[in-house]
């Protein structure tokens, strides 16, 4: 029985070590660089020709004043910006009601050679703020970028 007890306790220690090791690796191992959920407009521009043809996600803010809904009711043009670079997007999809100027979006699609990003999957990324209609607070782009975590580059 004491043999059995020892074996169990050894198992406890080994399991805890494995769990702790995996956690530490995930936290400090820097796998963030390989885990890029979306590219920012700047990164997409920097990628240049490598961005063409591949299916990628582009994330940023909808540039104020850039939304242009086509008459057919299905196509929509707008620009995604990160404050530095801006990428024009052609979206053939139904956006959620949250879609508006200055909101965060992640679009999935491909960069075309004419410089447009074409997408059929548009996702609105909102921040962690939940406000009642009356507690109005003016928004500035810098703050928005921060609250949406579009600025961090992966730790």
């Amino acid at each position: 029985m004491s043999q059995e007890r020892k074996r169990r306790r050894l198992l406890a220690v080994v399991a805890l070590l494995i769990a702790g090791g995996v956690m530490a690796y995930l936290a400090f191992g820097g796998i963030g660089e390989n885990l890029v959920y979306y590219w920012s407009p700047t990164e997409l521009r920097e990628a240049g020709p490598r961005a063409f043809g591949a299916s990628v996600r582009l994330g940023g803010l909808v540039e104020p004043g850039s939304i242009d809904r086509q008459a057919d009711g299905l196509t929509m043009r707008f620009a995604v910006t990160d404050g530095e670079a801006s990428v024009p997007v052609v979206a053939e999809t139904v956006p959620p009601a949250m879609f508006r100027e200055g909101i965060g979006v992640v679009v999935e699609g491909t960069m075309l050679r004419d410089g447009h990003f074409q997408t059929q999957r548009l996702m609105v990324k909102h921040d962690n703020q939940y406000r009642a209609p009356e507690d109005f607070k003016p928004e500035d782009m810098k703050e928005l970028m921060k609250s949406l975590q579009f600025e961090e580059t992966g730790t």
Partner: peptide, 9 residues
């Protein structure tokens, strides 16, 4: 919002 949006209610 007009048609052409996903409205959650």
């Amino acid at each position: 919002m007009p048609d052409g949006t996903i409205v959650g209610g």
